[in-house]
Amino acid sequence: MKNKVNLEKIAAVALALGVWQFGAMALDKSILLVSPLDVAALLTKLVGEIEFWQTVGYSFSRITAGFALGLLSGTIFAVTAHRLPIFEILLWPFIAAIKATPVASFIILCLIWLNSSALSIIISFLMVLPIVYTNMLQGLKSTDFKLLQMADLFKASWPRKLIYIFLPQLKPYLLSACSVSLGMSWKAGVAAEVIGIPDGSIGEMLYEAKIYLSSADLFAWTVVIVIISIIFEKLFNHLLKSAFNRLERI
């Protein structure tokens, strides 16, 4: 069944690439729509260059740092808000503002306040924080009250409550938050780099593609972003699920 689904997905991707190739050939203007074969050729050339890996490393490290910071802060804030309801109330305007404010406003504000090299960290952090905070708080609030009562009667220690009650309860909320926010952090992080143009970032490459009207570069770097984002999301979720499975086997 899984193999059938995988085959169907591969067939769908092949069909989409075929449509793209056909469209590029029909239009015959690479400045408007470059063919997937040209993009593949450029990508092959790029991956052989040291600068490519430096550029990927630059953006990856910053966006991942922002994600990690958002995940950590969101979790700490959610735990604090769960224990102290006043903290949830006090935090509410900030979280609501971060959710509602356009990402471009934050980017410009950060450019006024900070160095552009820290931009993608901050923007990625701001995208992840409300998602993780909201999901984790919801997870904590839906913790089985009767299980906690049982734990109190048996005088179970706090670390045991965390491992046996809270973490299994938070698992679906955390997985969902990470899945959504990982994609968001990449999209917003690269968008911030395009506006802030920090030296040696993927955003700078996209900006240059726009300046020189190089569709091939634009498509190639977009493919790179999509691939890194998907690999990172799959890898992170796999590690998270493995950690939870290991926990259940203790």
């Binding site: 009767k146 299980l147 009562q149 049982m150 734990a151 009667l153 048996f154 179970a156 045991r160 046996y164 009650i165 299994p168 259940e248 203790i250």
Partner: peptide
């Protein structure tokens, strides 16, 4: 104190031994 509640109140993701280790 210890108890068997009206509901089992076990940690469903863990096996029996882990449930006992919990308390």
């Amino acid at each position: 104190k210890s108890a068997v509640f009206q509901e089992d109140r076990l940690c469903e993701d863990f096996n029996a031994i882990a449930n006992i280790r919990f308390i």
